[in-house]
Structure formats: structure tokens, C-alpha cells
């Protein structure tokens, strides 16, 4: 016989978490949608219902499309490079390397431990056009001086470099964990069949790592869509909005211009975009996985 106490205790234990989840995750999701249908800014201090007007203004603004494009370029470039570097490093580090292995692993992983804000400052210094280390070493290869963060075309790539340096070590570790779970017998069998190293990587390692890759892709998408700290500290969205990304644009609207209606509309667009990209990629990955297995 279950007592009353036993029947209500599960809900009792869940209450602290549930109150917090509702207040800071679920209510905000609904409230973003609700506020996005209102005009609410410095000139209209009380929210006024305007339907989809915020969205109409947003989609009619060329700057929004510039920001959306910047964000998608950032995501589409950083994720494949980060993943490729992570995977290659993981495969190399999975070899017998003696005590040096640990040193290599630390060198690749330590950027995960430092704040994005600090990473931004390290790279602002490295990328300094006049006395920065990067321009100095490039000059010794005869590359002319690049203005990096002050140049329309180089600012976004410079931020992407910083992000790749900061993030690949974490994904490398996830791949290393995946590699260590792969069955050794398969490799032995493949060796007996005379398969070479690259064959084994293509036919055994990559297909078996597919679940890890799905995880890495999803986490990678969420992480890279959330890029803010780097932009805020390295370029403030400039020059000429060439590095302005969605979260920075939300920040500008909601917290610089105190335009909560527009900030919320942007938030809704932001979430829809992430979900769309994840869904499309999952479809693609699923198809690939079925073919290979």
C-alpha cells in the first residue's frame, strides 16, 4: 500500500526545480513571443499591441539581413573547421604517444578553461595591426600588413579564428571519448583483411563515430549561434556591421536602445533559425549515417 506521503513526495521534490524552470525558461519563451507582438520602447513605455509589425519592420530592414548573413557565415565556416580539427587531433592523440600525449592534450584543451572575454583580449593583442604578433610573422613570409579587426573583409574571419582556437579542444575531447569506446576487435579484423589506416578511418572510425558527430554538430550549432562575447569585445559589431551577429543585434535593440518589442521579435527569429538549422542538419546526417552503416 502506498501512503499519501509516498504519492505526493515525487512532486514535492520536483517543486524547487520546477518553479525555477517555469520562471526562467518556460515563462520567458512564451513571454518573448507575446512581447514581440507589442510595441515597447523608450517612446512607448507601456506595451501596445501591434500584431506582426515588429517582424514586418525587421524583415524590411537590410541591416537585419546583413546580421542574419553574418551569423550564418560564422556558423557555416566555424563548425566544419572546428570539427575537422577536433577529429584529426583526436585520431592523432589516440595513438600511443608516451608522456607527451598529456602535454599535447593540455595545449589543445586549455582554451576551453578560459573565458571567451579573455580569449577575445588575447586575440585583439595578437591581431593588432601595428605591433601584433600575427602581422609580424606574416610579414616575414612577405604578406602585406592586414588591418584585421578594422577591415571590412577581415574582421569576421579574425573573430572566427579566435572562436576556432577557443572551441576545438572541447570537441576534440568529446571525439577522444568516442574513439575510446570503439571496439578494438573490428580494427583487428580489418587489419587481417589487409585494410590500411585510411581505409579503417573511413570504413570503421567515421561511421561508428556518427552518434558522437551528431552530438558535436548540435552542441556546435547552439554554441556558435550564441556568439556574443567575442563580438562585444573585439569589434562591437563593426566595421560597418560586418561582424554584427544575431545575439549582438538582440543586445543592441533590447539593452542599448531599450526596445524590448524588437529585441523579443529578434529573439523569436533567433530561436526559430537555430531549430531550423538543427533540423535540416539532422536530416542530412541521418541519411548519411544510414548509407554508411
Amino acid at each position: 500500500m502506498r501512503t499519501v506521503n509516498q504519492r505526493i513526495s515525487p512532486y514535492l521534490y520536483l517543486i524547487p526545480s520546477l518553479i525555477l524552470l517555469v520562471a526562467f525558461t518556460y515563462y520567458p519563451i512564451l513571454s518573448s513571443v507575446y512581447i514581440s507582438l507589442h510595441e515597447w520602447n523608450l517612446f512607448t513605455p507601456e506595451p501596445k499591441f501591434v500584431g506582426f509589425e515588429n517582424y514586418t519592420i525587421l524583415f524590411g530592414d537590410p541591416l537585419f539581413w546583413r546580421v542574419a548573413r553574418n551569423t550564418l557565415v560564422y556558423v557555416a565556416v566555424t563548425i566544419p573547421i572546428t570539427m575537422a580539427m577536433a577529429l584529426i587531433m583526436a585520431i592523432l592523440l589516440n595513438e600511443r604517444l608516451g608522456w607527451l600525449r598529456n602535454a599535447y592534450r593540455v595545449a589543445a584543451f586549455y582554451p576551453t578553461m578560459i573565458p571567451m572575454a579573455a580569449a577575445a583580449m588575447l586575440w585583439v593583442w595578437l591581431l593588432n595591426p601595428g605591433i601584433g604578433l600575427i602581422n609580424h610573422y606574416l610579414a616575414s613570409f612577405g604578406v602585406p600588413r592586414i588591418e584585421w579587426l578594422y577591415n571590412m573583409d577581415w574582421a569576421l574571419p579574425a573573430i572566427m579564428m579566435t572562436a576556432i582556437w577557443k572551441n576545438f579542444g572541447y570537441f576534440m575531447l568529446i571525439y577522444l571519448a568516442g574513439l575510446q569506446n570503439l571496439p578494438g576487435e573490428l580494427y583487428e579484423a580489418a587489419s587481417l583483411e589487409g585494410a590500411g589506416f585510411l581505409h579503417k578511418v573511413r570504413l570503421i572510425t567515421l561511421p561508428l563515430l556518427a552518434p558522437t558527430t551528431v552530438f558535436v554538430v548540435v552542441v556546435g550549432i547552439i554554441t556558435s549561434f550564441n556568439v556574443f562575447d567575442l563580438v562585444h569585445l573585439m569589434t562591437q559589431g563593426g566595421p560597418g556591421n560586418r561582424t554584427n551577429v544575431l545575439v549582438y543585434y538582440i543586445y543592441q535593440h533590447a539593452f542599448r536602445f531599450a526596445d524590448y518589442g524588437m529585441g523579443s521579435a529578434l529573439t523569436v527569429v533567433f530561436v526559430v533559425m537555430i531549430l531550423a538549422v538543427i533540423l535540416v542538419l539532422m536530416r542530412l546526417l541521418e541519411r548519411r549515417t544510414h548509407y554508411e552503416v
Binding site: 519563451i29 550564441n226 545575439v247 538582440i250 529585441g263
Partner: peptide, 15 residues
């Protein structure tokens, strides 16, 4: 767990 952290900053700030 899957929620992008920056998706809730505006309403949470208001709260």
C-alpha cells in the same frame, strides 16, 4: 538543457 542561453535574456532581464 537544449535551450540556447541567450534566447531568454530579454524576458529574464524584465523579470
Amino acid at each position: 538543457m537544449m535551450m540556447p542561453i541567450h534566447a531568454v535574456v530579454v524576458p529574464n532581464y524584465l523579470t
